[in-house]
Design a protein around this nucleic acid. Sequence first.
DNA 1: CACGAGTTTGGATCGGCGTTCCAATCATGC
DNA 2: GCATGATTGGAACGCCGATCCAAACTCGTG
Lengths: 219, 219
Amino acid sequence: MAKRRADGLSKEVIVQAAAAILDDGGEAALTFRALTARLSTGYGAIYHHVANKSDLLAAATDAVIARVMGDAVAEGEPREALRTVSLGLFDAIDAHPWVGAQLSREPWRPALLEVYERIGGLLVALEVPERALFDAAGALVNYVLGVAGQNAANARLLAAGQGDRSAFLATVSAKWASLDPGEYPFVHRAATQLREHDDREQFLAGVDLFLAGIATLRG
Amino acid sequence: MAKRRADGLSKEVIVQAAAAILDDGGEAALTFRALTARLSTGYGAIYHHVANKSDLLAAATDAVIARVMGDAVAEGEPREALRTVSLGLFDAIDAHPWVGAQLSREPWRPALLEVYERIGGLLVALEVPERALFDAAGALVNYVLGVAGQNAANARLLAAGQGDRSAFLATVSAKWASLDPGEYPFVHRAATQLREHDDREQFLAGVDLFLAGIATLRG
DNA sequence: CACGAGTTTGGATCGGCGTTCCAATCATGC
DNA sequence: GCATGATTGGAACGCCGATCCAAACTCGTG
């Protein structure tokens, strides 16, 4: 009933197809039925190469992160290199929102090892004292993944709700502005900035804040 | 076929039951079938008060966050108050891991308004300059939710894998230690600290790093 | 007190999902 | 050429969220 395929069906091929489906239609679009259709095969063939859906998602996520860490060469001044690496991760997760969701569901993936190594190494180059190194690296990685994940959630929200970003921000901003300034002074005041802010720049501002804090540890 | 119940079935009752199920068995345990069993009712009754599962999860999350923000009174010195509020959120998400997952899936919940207001207000008290206020608040909130979410993911992982925390950390730590020091110098070196670190303390160290960075903006 | 309109309830049912299982087919060593 | 194991495709299972509807209740109105 089943001939051996001319194209080799391997885990890599399956993972690549899964990533394509995820990029096209988001997490909800990735089903084994959609996979069998795209690969013109059956469930058995897929399950022969992949343990289950979690395994598939994890492998696809690892592939994306590994590619980002391979592409983003971090040379030169450590501070600038840290910003470059962070932005690379942010952009990748922004482009593939499902990666953000997966990383907040399953940390400790092998792919994150590369991230820790890269960021930790750059902190060493920044001469962060030994005792603070581990905490600083953890905080920075968590910040990067956390913000990128939140940003990815927004991206997914917008993709699903078919509104564009500025319209969405205008709505939320209007809601913030309409709050009682007595009860919500800060949020009321921040409404304008919310509407006009750039996610990428705000992310970088956070990274800089971190680096400024880390700089106070030196010596 | 259906008599009116003596106990009033309301959205609040349903949300509370949902939260109880989530606390007991995690996200996977919350099904409408489990809900109908616990509440001794049918699907129709539940769907009459709740739009869908997303709505239910969102309402349960809002309830938890609202309670935390109500409990954690932040008085006294702003820096200490910021640490208290942050820790309150961290602990709440640690105790209810599903909240962390939900917040990284659906930000911009009304409950987060309170969080922004509280943290933003404390940053104002810290005399953070106007132009940096918005970015600083966004970064701090994202850090807190991001780390807490990652921590919740670990908690879920441990709950599902039935291993205890120290055993899990020992495993990962051993894996890190066994890496080639030439290829992974930082991770190899950090293995020991990974095994011995305290999540809560590391979280607070990150908050302090942030506050140190924010302090450099003053004036 | 009667009664109809609107609200609330419980459960049968639907389509879709992840996963399991198995018969059929291919590649390869003997 | 034949046995053996790897690989393939698809039928079937159990569970899920969600829909739909008839039954039972509440309450204002006359």
